[in-house]
Design a protein around this nucleic acid. Structure first.
Length: 295
DNA sequence: AGCCAGGTTTGGC
DNA sequence: GCCAAACATGGC
């Protein structure tokens, strides 16, 4: 990988990176939007633009000392080719890594990730994106880029003081009080920024104390927002695909049991593999087949 | 029109 | 601990 920075633009070459796949289609972030072939979001302290180019990507509007932050955000350092070797013994894992070439598991800001995935519960991707947009638009800091108006996610302090009724009027439904209660807990000292350095089990235990955060959302926050590559979110898709593709796990009694068995089987990078398989199943790149009814 | 969505909470055993 | 039902909303 080759990195240059000049006049607020970083040029990164020699890396497999599919911007649309990573930032939008893989449903790990809901804050990016595509406009005229470029990708925009407000995060890490301002509006940014990513443009895919033949050799890699350009990142506009960043300071030189932010380049490392974005390389980390996009997980560009990780050797995904090595993952394919490591998991070659699992046919579906290996195939998913091939099918979704250019996918990377993002390292997003933990607070943004937490809000996004509280909104994700029992919800569809299109509406999760819409609700994230509404939340930022109404309560987050405004910024502009290329004539587009964007907003950051609201801070815990600001969100703490938003009346539940305001959120309900905007269509947040029963998730409205979850957002506000979680914002208050974070404002009042919940150690969000320590999760990354805690062991997985401790971090998971802490997260599920937050309102609107159960086992699955906690795993999403750990995987996409805390660099815990072993965190293994089990949603409806992963539940189906794991039981179909890993018959030895099909007898798990619950999603939590399946999560534990899958982490044990797949090891330290279980979550990364999960993301590739999730995407391939959800987008029909690999057929899941008939759902095994017998548990 | 009705099923479903990257589930969580609550209350009951 | 495990289980079932309720839950707001709108995408498709």
């Amino acid at each position: 990988m080759k990195v240059q920075w000049k006049g607020g633009v970083a040029r990164i070459e020699g890396v497999a990176f599919d911007a649309r796949l990573c930032l939008i289609d893989s449903a790990q972030s809901f804050v990016w939007r595509e406009h005229e072939g470029k990708f925009y979001a407000a995060l890490l302290g301002g509006a940014v633009c990513i443009e895919p180019i033949e050799e890699g990507l350009l990142i506009y509007r960043i300071a030189e000392d932010q380049v490392e932050d974005f390389i980390h955000y996009l997980d560009l350092v990780r050797d995904y080719a090595a993952l394919a070797d490591q998991y070659a013994v699992y046919p579906y894992a290996a195939r998913a890594l091939r099918e979704a070439d250019g996918l990377r598991v993002l390292n997003q800001p933990v607070w943004d990730t937490l809000l996004s995935f509280i909104l994700s519960a029992n919800n569809n991707v299109a509406r999760i994106r819409k609700l994230c947009w509404l939340l930022s638009e109404h309560f987050g800091e405004r910024c502009e880029i290329d004539g587009l108006v964007l907003h950051e996610m609201p801070s815990p302090a600001v969100l703490s003081d938003v009346p539940e009724e305001s959120l309900r009027r905007l269509g947040f439904g029963y998730r409205a009080p979850f957002l506000i209660q979680t914002a208050r807990m974070v404002r009042d000292g919940f150690p969000l920024d320590r999760l990354r350095d805690l062991p997985y089990d401790e971090a998971h235990q802490l997260l599920i104390q937050l309102s609107g955060v159960g086992d699955k959302v906690a795993d999403c926050v750990l995987l996409f927002g805390c660099s815990h590559a072993s965190a293994f979110p089990v949603d409806v898709w992963v539940d189906r695909l794991m039981r179909a593709w890993f018959p030895e796990l099909a007898r798990a009694k619950s999603r939590l049991m399946l999560q534990r068995a899958a982490r044990e089987l797949l090891g330290g990078d279980a979550g990364l593999i999960q993301q590739f398989m999730f995407h391939c199943a959800r987008c029909g790149l690999i057929e899941v087949g008939e759902e095994p009814e017998v548990r």
